[in-house]
């Protein structure tokens, strides 16, 4: 199946648009359906599609395993760090109101940053799960 040119060309054409669609879902989640959880999964799906057609090794070059593991922790850090930032600025944990002068701008900023953290973690966890399952080598 991997030698079939149809799969190769279609997956190459689709790879970019899927990632752009994921970013659209991520940053348009405030105005329509979407948000960090869905966007992370969609971007991970692009990489999974690529690895199904072209093999695991090429995707591992594109997005190394260690890099994925770091992104996984980075997303949680971004989310939790937002809370720490609001404590430093003198509000309660995860209260976004001190981030900007007007309250709606502050809330909007906080929501975008938090959703970015969610998206990073979900993307990295889904891709990491796929790497772990498909790269598993039984001992026998």
């Amino acid at each position: 199946m991997r030698e079939n040119p149809v799969f190769k060309i279609v997956s190459k054409i689709l790879f970019g648009p899927i990632i752009i669609y994921g970013l659209y879902v991520q940053f348009h989640g405030d105005y329509g359906p979407g948000g960090g959880f869905q966007a992370g999964v969609i971007v991970a799906a692009a990489f999974i599609l690529y690895s199904i057609i072209f093999g695991l090794e090429r995707v591992r070059k594109l997005m190394p395993v260690i890099f994925v593991n770091y992104i996984m922790a980075l997303g949680v850090l971004v989310f939790a760090g937002t809370g720490i930032a609001s404590i430093i600025l003198g509000a309660n944990y995860l209260d976004y109101s001190p981030f900007a002068y007007k309250i709606y701008k502050a809330q909007h900023l906080g929501i975008i940053v938090v959703e970015l953290g969610v998206g990073l973690t979900v993307f990295a966890v889904m891709l990491g799960l796929f790497y772990a399952f498909s790269g598993f080598k039984p001992k026998k």
């Binding site: 948000g35 959880f37 999964v41 979900v122 966890v125 799960l129 399952f133």
Partner: peptide, 15 residues
């Protein structure tokens, strides 16, 4: 919404 994503992650742990 959050429970679905968590459900898949825990399902993967079971797998």
């Amino acid at each position: 919404l959050t429970a679905i994503v968590v459900g898949v992650a825990t399902n993967a742990l079971g797998l």
